[in-house]
Design a protein around this nucleic acid. Structure first.
Length: 473
RNA sequence: GGCGCCUUGGCGGAGUGGUUACGCAGGGCUCUGCAAAAGCUCAGACACCGGUUCGAACCCGGUAGGUGCCUCCA
């Protein structure tokens, strides 16, 4: 497996720290609102990474966090907690907001066939771990306390700016936003924030830092604490959206590596952003398409997954309704061909099909291992399926074809075989009745049965020899 | 101002030196009682200007345009 590694800015060959096993950590959602299409691009891509690793036989432990506290409206450590803000907006508590949107997110994972991570961990369930980590950093002299919280002194961590290639001096000179004047450096960030004087938050905890003042963790510390807890102080792959490179991941590295003295992750994989109609997705533009919006248009969510795989994870991708509809057509076409698995033709040739399946599976695995080149994989699938389409499937090729489709389902998560079970008895009786009527040239009866099948969700294709193929609509 | 990225046919999108993948959309034809998400087939792109090379979408330099992060944000 080769992946573009943000740490080295090269395509590196992945070598697990522990033979045969690999750990992956993904920065998950902040659960204060519905996820939009861009979030799903990232999640599907991370899921594809995990599927690829597993398909290579690596025992993969996938950890994803849920940020349910501490992510402020501004990364400058000012402003409100997003959860508390969401709570005010909806007249609920921050806890209720977190629960509601966590459930919604989990539902989306299922709808998009994103395999559930082995550990989905919440920041609020790991307050003690976070406090312990801050104390560790404190003991090593990386922290300082000011009026509103405990901060990390980024100048104490050598190489702080290296990960994101930042020039801190230039950034400060060109900074567009003034920062808390008590902070020693613009790049310093909060490890722990104290609740504002006289205000009670929905989410706040006792802590050893504030002389009795309640408080809550900063956004970055949760990922350091939880990734180390579940995957160890040094693990294999850390992933997230590309926007995390300069702030969140830079800070995470500073926290974890300062505390442990070890390299946090060997490989960092970042998903590029997606634009909608050429514009970036943002709250202010109001172009954050949700899964519900897609369902509302009558488009099956399976197509979303295929649509996402049509782009490479490192390119700035484009979402459009036309593109999504094209993906839906393509998926339908694939399923139509896949349905042949249940209707083999005894006389068909199987040699060329078998060799095509073998070489396709080989090519697909290679493309996957080559920095997750999913667009290339899809073209290979098209090529393989067109061979099947051109020459009905022989009985002898059925089992290998099933295995091939199952492989695609496993690796791509698109349900070619799974959504294509054998016919139930009623349908197969109708198909046979129509075939009989047609052979008897009873066009009226034959067409009526075809309409009936269509209304039941089945399409019909008559083959020259008088036999019939069906497919699900 | 700093750090990046991108520019392939109507749309999406592979392809890192040698018959310009592939899908969607489009044209034509064929099969068929009709129909088909059936078959066959056609057309169509490598932003621009130089350079390297026998040969460049692919390497180098420049130009133009676009765009991301540095604030929200996957």
């Amino acid at each position: 497996m080769k992946l573009y590694n943000t740490l080295t800015r090269r395509i590196d060959t992945v070598k697990p720290l522990q033979a045969g096993r690999i750990g992956v950590y993904t920065c998950g959602p902040t659960v204060y609102d519905y996820p939009h299409i861009g979030n799903w691009y990232t999640n599907v891509r991370m899921d594809t990474l995990v599927r690829a690793l597993r398909s290579e036989g690596l025992i993969t432990t996938w950890v994803m966090n849920i940020t349910d506290v501490g992510h402020l409206v501004s990364d400058a450590d000012d402003g409100e907690d997003k959860l508390e803000k969401g709570a005010r907006r909806e007249g609920k508590t921050a806890w209720e907001i977190a629960e509601f949107y966590t459930k919604d997110f989990m539902n989306g994972l299922e709808l998009l066939h994103i395999g559930t991570p082995d550990h989905i961990v919440k920041a609020t369930d790991h307050i003690k771990d976070q406090i312990a980590l801050i104390q560790r950093l404190d003991a090593k002299g990386y922290t300082y306390v000011i009026d509103d919280g405990v901060y990390y002194d980024t100048t104490k961590f050598e190489g702080y700016a290296a990960f994101a290639n930042l020039d801190l001096d230039e950034q400060q000179a060109g900074a567009r936003v003034s920062f808390n004047q008590q902070k020693r450096h613009a790049s310093d960030f909060a490890l722990w924030k104290f609740s504002a004087q006289g205000k009670q938050r929905d989410m706040e905890w006792d802590n050893p830092f504030g002389n009795g003042r309640q408080g809550f963790p900063g956004w970055h510390i949760e990922c350091s604490a939880m990734s180390m807890k579940y995957l160890g102080e040094s693990f294999d792959i850390h992933t997230g959206g590309i926007d995390h490179v300069p702030v969140h991941h830079t800070n995470e590295i500073a926290q974890s590596e300062a505390a442990s003295g070890k390299r946090l992750a060997q490989y960092w994989l970042h998903s590029n952003h997606v634009t909608v109609n050429g514009e970036k997705i943002s709250k202010s533009l109001g172009n954050g398409i949700r899964l519900q919006d897609i369902s509302d248009k009558g488009i099956a969510l399976d197509a979303v997954r295929l649509n996402i795989l049509e782009s490479h994870y490192r390119s700035q991708s484009k979402f459009s309704w036309d593109g999504l509809e094209a993906a839906a057509n393509r998926l339908q076409h694939w399923r139509t061909i896949a349905a042949q698995v249940w209707q083999p033709l005894a006389e068909a040739d199987s040699e060329s099909v078998l060799s095509e399946l073998t070489s396709a599976a080989h090519d697909i695995a290679a493309a996957l291992a080559d920095d997750l080149n999913t667009p290339l994989i899809l073209s290979r699938v098209d090529q393989a399926l067109s061979v099947l389409e051109a020459q009905a499937v022989a009985a002898a090729a059925i089992e290998p074809l099933k295995a091939f489709l199952a492989y695609l389902d496993t690796v791509l998560g698109i349900d070619l075989l799974a959504a294509n079970g054998p016919l139930d008895e009623t349908i197969s009786r109708l198909i046979e009745q129509r075939r009989t009527a047609r052979l008897a040239k009873d066009w009226a009866a034959s067409d009526k049965l075809r309409d009936q099948l269509q209304s039941l969700g089945y399409g019909i294709k008559d083959l020259p020899a008088g036999s019939t193929q069906w497919f699900r609509l």
